[in-house]
């Protein structure tokens, strides 16, 4: 029993013909695994490296550059909720919003609620400044987030 299912491995292999070098599939593979398993364990790294004909440390080296990925011993909750702290959002209440979400969820940014439903994160500008303060639910922008709107979103995500 490995970390990746045969189906996941096949989907990673399907990326290979798009690039002249196998190593280029590192980010696509990491995304695929991370989205599905909510983490990329050491075992998963070894299996990705095998498909890409790399040394596991090469995959590890790349992965750890991008703080985005959760590695061995860390795991994202069911939904990742990002609050933007960029300047445009700060000017429209982002810091207050981050504090609001932290106290509502009872966790600091970078952590997951006890029930495993939500991982709260701060983000640098997510390019949704026309809807500042903005959040991101997984990879989808949520704009003009008031504390009330954040509460409603959190309630929805908790029930998911």
């Amino acid at each position: 029993m490995g970390a990746l299912t045969e189906d996941m491995k096949n989907r990673i292999r399907a990326f290979l013909p798009k690039y002249p070098r196998k190593q280029a599939v590192t980010l696509p593979a990491l995304h695929l695994v991370h989205d599905e398993l909510r983490t990329v364990s050491n075992e998963a790294i070894v299996e990705i490296a095998e498909i890409l004909e790399l040394h596991p440390s090469e995959v590890q080296d790349t992965m750890t550059f991008y703080e985005f990925y959760k590695g061995e011993g860390q795991k994202n909750g069911k939904t990742r909720l990002w609050v933007c702290r960029g300047l445009a959002c700060m000017l429209r209440g982002a810091y207050e919003l981050i504090e609001h979400c932290e106290s509502k969820l009872g966790v600091k940014c970078g952590h997951t609620t006890e029930d495993g439903t939500i991982t709260l994160e701060f983000a640098e500008c997510i390019g949704a400044c026309d809807g500042a303060p903005a959040c991101m639910r997984e990879d989808v922008h949520v704009m003009n987030v008031t504390p009330e709107k954040a509460d409603a979103l959190i309630t929805e995500l908790k029930l998911k």
């Binding site: 590192t26 550059f65 985005f68 990925y69």
Partner: peptide, 24 residues
């Protein structure tokens, strides 16, 4: 091709390194 949340991937050679599957 999707990035992974790092500003430096916008610098053109950082982008290229990242595309190649390395640290940007």
């Amino acid at each position: 091709h999707r990035g992974a949340g790092a500003y430096i991937c916008g610098e053109e050679t950082g982008l290229i390194e990242s595309l190649e599957g390395k640290r940007a």
